[in-house]
Amino acid sequence: MTLLTIILLACITFFSRYLFLHPKLPIRIGAKITHFLSFSAPAVLTAIWVPIIFIKDNSFNSSFSNPYLLSATVAVITAYKSKSVYLTLGTSLSVFVLLRLAPI
């Protein structure tokens, strides 16, 4: 039963990724839509990461004793200044682990 469920799940995830790549689909994307879609990556990725930082157990947590918030602040600043994925990961993960080991 679980096997069948897993195969159906695989169909759904593939379908959602592949659908609009299919050439026979009768849609044409004009210049306006293309411009609109150019904002999709920052929009979706941000909508994924911001709740991870601010929401814990279904409630809003913006206090500075929240290790997620402090480490994410470090990450945003590092990413803005350095534009380096590695440096951003390195500094903010270090801060995060330190805060976990020795909470403020």
């Binding site: 994924i48 990461w49 994410a72 990450a75 990413a79 803005y80 994925v85 990961l89 903010s92 995060f96």
Partner: peptide, 15 residues
């Protein structure tokens, strides 16, 4: 948190 940070690192430079 590791996921959040990766996305931060990818999004912020595009702003």
């Amino acid at each position: 948190f590791a996921i959040a940070v990766t996305f931060i690192a990818l999004v912020i430079p595009s702003v």
